[in-house]
């Protein structure tokens, strides 16, 4: 009997090990797939033009072959002319603009999303469901179509004055059209709906107002979803390209995404200096990585908790 048990345990152990190996191999494969673009970015940023063009491509680079000039070229200054001494590539200005724009957009989005999701999930008013259906319907319209209408709106609001655009104009123009998102409203409404009605009635009996109920009960319960929305929305703002390119008239107002696109292309031949482009991409990614590693626990908790129903 005992032998059988031992044997079974052995089989079980072997199976477990095999399963673990399979899992880790699978995870490692996925991890590699995810990491390769980042690795490639880093690798390219450390290659000289000549190494970059090598065929077959060089996959590993010894530290002594690293070409860090791509990095310090980013911080070169203009050598001659009236702009002498100014940075060739105003990297920090672009970063600052991107950070400000994504913070403002995200804050605005959160406020509109939470309030309207609450209204659609909890409050009873006439035409609520029709309004919601119309809102959902607008999701069918591709975002690019809004570029022209948004442009006309922003222009008539006076925020696109090409002779004299201020940073506040640009900030409003870049953030306001993106301060609501039907998808996030829909997403959060579904989360809110899962919160049992009993909690609402109990709170009402205790004399809380709707707003207090939203603040004290709903937001804490739906926090994981809100965190997700925050992350997704900041990412969207960080990656925005077409709209910021159209609405900014001056170089100093540009976001990192637009700056990266144009700055390293030789305008006379249309060729791009990939080394420098990747070096700057690495620098753009760096703050996000630092942010992630610092707040790893909080972010992971948010993501893992989002599976648990309130």
């Amino acid at each position: 009997m005992a032998e059988v048990f031992v044997k079974n345990e052995k089989v079980y152990k072997a199976k477990k090990i095999a399963f673990n190996i399979a899992t880790y191999v699978f995870l490692a494969a996925i991890a590699i797939a995810v990491l390769i673009p980042f690795y490639w970015m880093l690798l390219t940023s450390l290659k000289t033009e000549e190494l970059m063009l090598r065929i077959p491509p060089i996959l590993f680079l010894k530290p002594e072959d690293w070409e860090i000039s791509n990095y310090y070229k980013l911080f070169e200054v203009v050598q001659s002319g009236p702009r002498r001494g100014e940075p060739l590539f105003p990297f920090f200005d672009y970063m600052r603009n991107t950070i400000i724009v994504s913070l403002v957009t995200t804050a605005g989005t959160l406020i509109t999303t939470v309030l309207s999701a609450f209204a659609f999930a909890r409050l009873n008013f006439k035409g609520r469901d029709i309004m919601f259906a119309v809102l959902i319907g607008t999701m069918m319209i591709p975002g690019e179509i809004f570029v022209l209408t948004n442009f006309l709106t922003i222009n008539s609001l006076g925020w696109y004055d090409i002779m004299d655009q201020t940073f506040m104009d640009v900030l409003f123009a870049m953030t306001l059209p993106f301060m609501t998102s039907v998808f996030y409203i829909f997403y959060l409404r579904q989360t809110f709906k899962q919160i049992p009605n009993e909690l609402y009635y109990a709170a009402k009996v205790d004399g809380t107002t709707d707003f207090q109920y939203l603040l004290k009960i709903m937001i804490p319960v739906a926090l994981p979803t809100i965190v997700t929305i925050t992350i997704l929305n900041s990412m969207g703002a960080w990656n925005a390209y077409i709209w910021p390119a159209i609405i900014t008239t001056k170089d100093e107002f540009r976001l990192v995404s637009n700056g990266l696109r144009g700055a390293f292309t030789d305008t006379s031949t249309g060729r791009t200096d990939f080394g420098q482009q990747m070096a700057s991409a690495t620098l753009v990614t760096l703050p996000l990585l630092i942010l992630f590693f610092t707040f790893r626990k909080q972010i992971m908790r948010g993501v893992s908790r989002s599976g648990i129903k309130g």
């Binding site: 002319g81 702009r83 390293f264």
Partner: peptide
């Protein structure tokens, strides 16, 4: 207002001509 596509590097000479 003069719009072009020259990055800082090329516009250094352009800036001189403008000055």
């Amino acid at each position: 207002l003069f719009w072009h596509i020259y990055g800082q590097e090329k516009s250094a000479l352009l800036d001189e001509l403008i000055a």
